[in-house]
Design a protein around this nucleic acid. Sequence first.
DNA 1: GCGTCAGAGAAAAACGTTTTATCGTCGTGA
DNA 2: TCACGACGATAAAACGTTTTTCTCTGACGC
Lengths: 358, 358
Amino acid sequence: MLKKAKSPSSETLKGPHSRITVQDIANAAKVSIGTVSTVLQNRHVERRIPLQTVTRIRETAAALGYLPNINARRLRSLKSEKNNVVLALLTSFEAPLNLVSQFLAELRKAAEQSTQAKNGISFSMVIELFPAGRLSEMPGLLTGDHCNAAIIMNTTPQDDSFLACNRPPFPVVLVNRLVQGYSSVISQPGAGKRALEILAKAHCKKPAVLRGNPLTQSSQRRLEAFSRASTELFGYSMQEIVASNLSEEAGYLAMRDFLKNNGKCDGLYVVSDTLCMGAYLAIREAGLRIPKDIAVVSVGDYEHADYFEPSLTTVGARHDLLAQKAGELLVHHLFNPAAEAEVAHVPTREVLRASTQG
Amino acid sequence: MLKKAKSPSSETLKGPHSRITVQDIANAAKVSIGTVSTVLQNRHVERRIPLQTVTRIRETAAALGYLPNINARRLRSLKSEKNNVVLALLTSFEAPLNLVSQFLAELRKAAEQSTQAKNGISFSMVIELFPAGRLSEMPGLLTGDHCNAAIIMNTTPQDDSFLACNRPPFPVVLVNRLVQGYSSVISQPGAGKRALEILAKAHCKKPAVLRGNPLTQSSQRRLEAFSRASTELFGYSMQEIVASNLSEEAGYLAMRDFLKNNGKCDGLYVVSDTLCMGAYLAIREAGLRIPKDIAVVSVGDYEHADYFEPSLTTVGARHDLLAQKAGELLVHHLFNPAAEAEVAHVPTREVLRASTQG
DNA sequence: GCGTCAGAGAAAAACGTTTTATCGTCGTGA
DNA sequence: TCACGACGATAAAACGTTTTTCTCTGACGC
């Protein structure tokens, strides 16, 4: 009802679902869009707009439910934002976020160090989340209108095959995933083998693994290495205990059921610290001792391992190096569009603690 | 060297630090910007651009180090992106991110439910991180060119006082902070009092708290309530053990030193589960038993409490409700610009476990 | 009566893209 | 010779802002 065409450039009636713009406010308040803009930015005092006009504009803006278009605003805004490059970190809602801030920090560091070379460029970084397995629905991924470069983490196999078929029009670095044609950072394989060796040194003969579902790509590699090493050393593969997801509770339930059904093992490799926390409880409840009855190795996802009772031996990724490498690689690709895809292997870290040492 | 003015609209020489645009590529490759644009979007086949031109454009783009301007691209892009509202979640680098995905998910839910009312609007959500205490340096916070609305979490007192003086030009909801003039969601006070009551019921006489540094606003409120309750019941306040930060290690060290110096307490309130993990180890190492020698209550930040040994009693925030309320409140403000600031108190959850029950 | 100045606002130029409409040119069949 | 389609590319409009420049009043001092 407040709307009324006035400016000749907007004679055409707007569609019903079209968003309110400064032009609409200007028409309704019978001023020009420049005036509306200054008022909405609270610069009316320096521009000497009388209070009456200010309140009129403010009221019509509120009445019309005006929401500024962020992209238009940024496009036109300060000089400092002019040379702005958007770096994104894409991860799934379901994955734990505790690592992503480290990745983001390293990415920023890498970007800013390179700034000195390509001076004048500023960086802004965002995290965007997608539902696991539905990376394909992420807006801007294929059109390239969300970021100039991205680190993608915590994808599912479904997401990976989507990426294999559809390449975003900007540099991408994957974390712990191997997809043809993409750069990625990846933990050195061999953690699985080392896990078995550690258990063997703790005099285990019947190894088992506890894993979540679905199996992440890196877990799968570790498991395969573990299995191969087991076959080599003992002549048989390990038992496999499958938890329904990656929570403590799932680990607890899976391990409890295994032990209840008279499952026997004297060495356990758990592919996530969170699962392991649940497994510890199940083992305690069954009256078994760590490491005397069952030695346990996990991966060191978190920094908790020292505080388990008994403290937990871990062989796993060095997230700090992964993050650093990922940041460097992405920035490298950002400024060297012709560079070949590159897979960086990052060494693992091994900390022997009480859970494998009698 | 490749650059050469051709189009009449860009006769003026560019400054040295000016970013490469499609115009520059067009000039260098001697084609029009429209052609460059179609090639860069890989639509050359449908537009029948010959391969030779395509490669020439691609090569000059790469040689010039072209990076598209994301904002310009989004501004001009698809209809679906036209009615796009940007919702942001601002948190500090230092704070654990494990909660933010829950907040983001709830925010999205709230936004999408409201979409049916305000139909035609799509939402995009981003997380942006700032160094704790330096929220003020976050670009776009005061100019409003980064988002249409934001949830701000994990601020320091310094950030709060900055916010108190400078109001961003978009709706804001704070989490667990009380700042004049802002809407916020906040855990019901009283968790601290309940913690003391639980300890008292476990026959404690000498309560202590273990806290991190700096003290977050919500921790401070809890501590004050705890102290008041202690004074009321016992006639004296609790002892205060201060850890240097919020890590497991800090908790361990602080608690170990306290016990080493003959500190005595029979009930411990720990304001973070992470700290508590360290405290558990220190208590074990000192040969003390939980809860017989020391009963322990913490806050339930994570979902670990069941898996502590012994399992950990918690009284703390219901993050699910906090997140839900925050999302709803922000969306409400987004579509009702005139609405008053509102503080939503969210009840706490109390789970009694073995660490307080002999 | 005339220059000057301040107030209030309009008009227009940018920002860097994408998209649409248009324009030559070249062969080719009638 | 003419109409015509295919080809290759260009010019120009749009996107929604912000910012700069300009215009039009009156009022005021001289």
